[in-house]
Each structure stands twice: as C-alpha cells, then as structure tokens.
C-alpha cells in the first residue's frame, strides 16, 4: 500500500506515473453501508484538490466525494454505474472511481500515508 495516499475525508489516490486512480476508503465504505449509487465525474472534467468530485449514496445516507488531488479526469469506472455494490466489496481496489492526470504532484504532501491514515482513524 506504499503508493496509496489518503485524505481526511476518506478518499484515496494511488499514483502510477503522472496519473492517479482515486476512490473511497474501506472505512468510509463500511460507514456508509450498502452503497446504492455512485455519481461519477465526466471524463475531461477538471477538479481541484479537496473539492467535489462526485457523490455516493446508500439507503439512508448521501455523501460527497472530494478529489484527493487536482487535475483532469481521464477515465471513470463505469462499472460502478451498474454495480455500485463493488464499493462495499472492494473499496480500495476494484471500486476506483476516477483516474486523474495530476496537475500538481506536490499536493500529495497534503495527504496521509496508509499508516498515518490508520492512526487517524483511531482518533475518530
């Protein structure tokens, strides 16, 4: 999990070269319960770090998803449109939501490593 970075809003980004796949953490998926809908961004959209990227719903809750990094959306995981339950099954792997071309890799410094995030969860 060395290449994962987490935000305090429970999103992750996994960086590969100049791009990063993003999603929500296992913890966040568990807190939401059974996910019923994921609203994905449009390919080509430009997002800023910590601003709204999409949203996610369960039966009794709705949350915004915040972009952990700035950049352009180059791909979205359309499988989530028909099988939102992927989020519950594989939040930090199969249920990536968007792939972002990072405009400022130095922003990763504003995020937590996996072990820092695990410590952060203990404080909640």
């Amino acid at each position: 999990m060395a290449d994962y970075f987490f935000s305090k809003e429970h999103e992750w980004v996994r960086v590969e070269g100049s791009k990063g796949k993003v999603g929500i953490s296992d913890h966040a998926a568990h807190e939401l319960g059974d996910v019923t809908f994921v609203e994905l961004p449009k390919v080509g959209a430009r997002v800023k770090q910590f601003e709204i990227l999409g949203s996610i719903e369960s039966v009794k809750a709705a949350s915004d998803i915040f972009a952990p990094v700035s950049g352009a959306v180059v791909a979205v995981n359309t499988a989530l449109e028909t099988t939102p339950e992927l989020v519950n099954e594989s939040a930090e792997e199969g249920a990536w939501m968007a792939e972002i071309e990072l405009s400022d890799p130095s922003e990763l410094q504003n995020l937590m490593t996996k072990s820092q995030y695990d410590d952060f969860l203990k404080t909640l």
């Binding site: 019923t36 809908f37 719903e57 369960s58 039966v59 009794k60 809750a61 709705a62």
Partner: peptide, 12 residues
C-alpha cells in the same frame, strides 16, 4: 431513493 430527499440530503 430517499437519499435524494431533504431529510437526508438537506440543502442538496
């Protein structure tokens, strides 16, 4: 689809 509604999503 109650997550669209005011008692959950409030101003959104």
């Amino acid at each position: 689809l109650q997550a669209r509604e005011q008692h959950i999503k409030r101003h959104k």
